[in-house]
């Protein structure tokens, strides 16, 4: 299979919809296929990175366990649009993992395939 750089853009908050789970699932599968995968969190997608997340009241899984396993899949670039954090009054200390601030346009330019969720 040809090797391409894949960017998964997550724009939705966890729990309220399945977008972030499905986006992370795609990222994990891409990495398992041996592709270089980066994640970009924009808009409400930054809530996916908040610390202290739990399962939902009915036992819905949420996304925190998937964020935890990213390093095992060699997904190392967790990129954040700083504006999204600022707009929500969040700081890096509120997040469960180390992130990298990026210019979304530059990041898109560096990747061959962009899938939005």
């Amino acid at each position: 299979m040809t090797s391409k750089r894949i960017l998964i853009v997550l724009r939705h908050a966890p729990h309220g919809s399945s977008w972030s789970r499905e986006g992370l699932e795609a990222a994990l599968v891409g990495a398992a296929l041996g592709q270089e995968v980066s994640l970009l969190f924009m808009g409400d997608g930054v809530f996916t990175l908040c610390s202290e997340q739990q399962v939902g009241a009915l036992g819905q899984k949420g996304t925190a366990p998937m964020i935890d396993v990213l390093p095992m899949y060699d997904i190392e670039r967790l990129c954040v649009d700083e504006q999204a954090l600022i707009a929500r009054g969040l700081e890096t200390k509120d997040l469960m993992v180390a992130i990298e601030y990026v210019d979304p346009a530059e990041l898109i330019a560096e990747h061959d395939i962009v899938l939005t969720f």
Binding site: M1, T2, K4, I6, E25, A26, V29, G30, A32, L33, Q35, I113, L115
Partner: peptide, 12 residues
Amino acid sequence: TGLGQLLDAALT
């Protein structure tokens, strides 16, 4: 099919 087919289609 599995999600791998989505990635495969995107790659090929």
